[in-house]
Simulated assay, not measured.
Amino acid sequence: MGLFKRNPFGHILFIKKWLIRILGTLTHRRFRGFNELQIDGSEIIRSLPDTNVLFISNHQTYFADVVAMFHVFNASLSNRDDSIKNVGYLWNPKLNIYYVAAKETMKAGLLPKILAYVGSISIERTWRAEGKDVNRQVKMSDISMIGKALDDGWVITFPQGTTTPFKPIRKGTAHIIKKYKPIVVPIVIDGFRRSFDKKGLRVKKKNILQSMEIKAPLEIDYENDSIAQIVEKIEYAIEQHPSFLKVIPQDELMAQEELNKLRKWKADNKKPLV
């Protein structure tokens, strides 16, 4: 890799590599130390092509969600099975990982600007600006930037566009899927909202069970599925469909509680879940 080689967005890859190494090292204990991140699906990451992959996920904090995914993706590609043990995987990170974020968020301070250099596709939100509800047209240049990123590598997006759970899926994600036909990989995360503050920069509470489930790619008929059908598939895949709000049976709650106790015991004793 040439010292000044750039990606399609003009970022120097040498600088990006060192930023990932440094930030990854500084944040590692947030997911394996203060808390223990339980991962499921590393083998799916290793099966994916190098480009045109869209990760869709529920959203719990501004930055910690994405940082955790950078750790998990690179650890998985370094043949770690559902583990981010030993940060050596950061030495040769995948440099064509991008994530979609609100432009105003990525301009709010020095750290967000540094994180933006790591891989942000900064777009203008059509429904929210400066803490107020707005209604504006989608900028085609924003859609084109996401397409450019997919052409170069992997893109992470949070189709609800908010950290508030069970909010509607934004149709823009479905339009992007129809237009660029990426492999769509759902991810379901939990525990981040309890572990960190809203921005995901400060550890709010330790010894919280965090989880990240990487699911098999969605089956999508790019030509025939409607926008509404794709939106519904996304809702179910990232477990944000209204049906998930229904009452959970008591026996299922008890089984989940037992699993949580086991996870906590494993985390306290620094042992893998299985």
Score class of each variant (00 low, 15 high):
residue 209 L to M: 14
residue 209 L to K: 10
residue 209 L to N: 14
residue 210 Q to N: 14
residue 210 Q to W: 13
residue 210 Q to Y: 10
residue 210 Q to A: 08
residue 211 S to R: 11
residue 211 S to W: 08
residue 212 M to E: 02
residue 212 M to C: 07
residue 213 E to T: 13
residue 213 E to M: 09
residue 214 I to N: 07
residue 214 I to R: 01
residue 214 I to H: 08
residue 214 I to E: 10
residue 214 I to Q: 05
residue 215 K to T: 11
residue 215 K to M: 15
residue 216 A to V: 04
residue 217 P to Y: 07
residue 219 E to I: 15
residue 219 E to N: 12
residue 220 I to F: 04
residue 222 Y to G: 03
residue 222 Y to H: 11
residue 222 Y to A: 02
residue 223 E to C: 05
residue 224 N to A: 12
residue 226 S to V: 04
residue 226 S to K: 04
residue 226 S to L: 08
residue 226 S to T: 10
residue 227 I to F: 07
residue 227 I to A: 00
residue 227 I to G: 02
residue 229 Q to E: 05
residue 229 Q to K: 02
residue 229 Q to S: 02
residue 229 Q to V: 03
residue 230 I to F: 02
residue 232 E to G: 01
residue 232 E to F: 01
residue 233 K to W: 06
residue 233 K to Y: 04
residue 233 K to F: 00
residue 234 I to M: 06
residue 235 E to F: 09
residue 238 I to A: 03
residue 238 I to W: 00
residue 240 Q to V: 09
residue 242 P to C: 03
residue 242 P to D: 02
residue 242 P to N: 00
residue 243 S to P: 00
residue 243 S to N: 07
residue 245 L to A: 12
residue 245 L to V: 09
residue 246 K to P: 02
residue 247 V to C: 05
residue 247 V to I: 09
residue 248 I to T: 06
residue 248 I to H: 00
residue 248 I to G: 00
residue 249 P to F: 13
residue 249 P to R: 07
residue 249 P to M: 13
residue 249 P to T: 03
residue 250 Q to E: 15
residue 251 D to F: 11
residue 251 D to Y: 14
residue 252 E to Y: 12
residue 252 E to H: 04
residue 252 E to M: 11
residue 252 E to S: 11
residue 252 E to F: 14
residue 253 L to G: 01
residue 253 L to S: 06
residue 254 M to I: 12
residue 254 M to S: 04
residue 254 M to A: 10
residue 254 M to G: 00
residue 254 M to Y: 11
residue 256 Q to Y: 15
residue 258 E to H: 14
residue 258 E to F: 14
residue 263 R to T: 09
residue 264 K to P: 06
residue 265 W to S: 12
residue 265 W to F: 14
residue 265 W to H: 07
residue 266 K to V: 13
residue 266 K to E: 14
residue 266 K to W: 13
residue 267 A to M: 15
residue 269 N to H: 15
residue 269 N to M: 13
residue 269 N to D: 13
